[in-house]
Design a protein around this nucleic acid. Sequence first.
DNA 1: TTAGGGTTAG
Length: 343
Amino acid sequence: MITGYIECGKIELARSFFDAMPDRNNVSYITMIFAYSKYGSVESAKELYDQMAEKDLLLYNAMIACFAQNNRAKEALQLFDEMLKPNANVQPDKMTLASAISACSQLGESKYGTWIETYMRELGIGMDDHLATSFIDLYAKCGNIDKAHELFKSLQTRDLVAYTAMILGYGINGRGKETIELFEEMMDADIIPNLVTFAGILTAYNHVGLVEEGYRCFMSMHRHGLLASQDHYAIVVDLLGRAGRLEEAHELIKKMPMQPHAGVWGALLLACSLHNNVELAEVAWKNCCELEPDSSGYHSLLANIYASAGRWDDAKRLRRAVEEKGLVKIPGSSWTECFESQQ
DNA sequence: TTAGGGTTAG
């Protein structure tokens, strides 16, 4: 019953059902935690997790996965650390490690990831394709592309996710030729790309600076029956914008079948700052402000563009407005420092 | 024992 509601996305109903259950066990808790995780309600998941006095492997796995899948990598690794303490009395399994590696990857923590690889062997857990794909992503993001490729070659089956991780890895490491070759290899293997794959491939083209190839790739999405999301548009706006094709990028935004999010306009604003286009920057900035009124980053970008154009008064006016409104830049994650201080 | 893992820029 509960899983039926969850499958339909009726999470409130699932929760009511869960609350009314006379014999809730840890499996019902875990089912609810995974459901909350899927729909991004991390706080609700954590609330349920905290209710259980005895934390077993399943419960740890559910909560660590929830953090890792919702971009809360630091908390995922903190909980993983807690789980490894002797008084926790549990031993991680493949699922735990998959989430922990994913969290390391989000934080660029290659040292911690390498430690997990060693620890994995100590526990007698063998490398499977899922774990290897997590490691491919981790090592590629940390710049160790050779190690990533070595793992990719060792896979039993190269599936969609593995190809996507490797393509993205080549892309962010500036390996243009390999990016294209691997994409072609994937198509030859009749592996149908999905929306995530396209985001990865477009990102790769963007990093490598292959504008035409990237644009063509984006235009081919509908042939695969895929409707590009706002994120895909943001990458292509960035791709065109960085190449100085600002008007084309602007036209693309105007033709979007859905409302662009701030990231799309933000990509155009960034491109305008790279190419000193004040008029278009003002258009992009206005849209960014409407969509994300509390962010100071867009004002700073426009102020810099004004300053580069010698419009000092406008730059000053904008900077003053930021101070008056008390808009503050949110500092980045300090997990790396936290981790290093524990060494 | 039970659930369930990996891929999306700046």
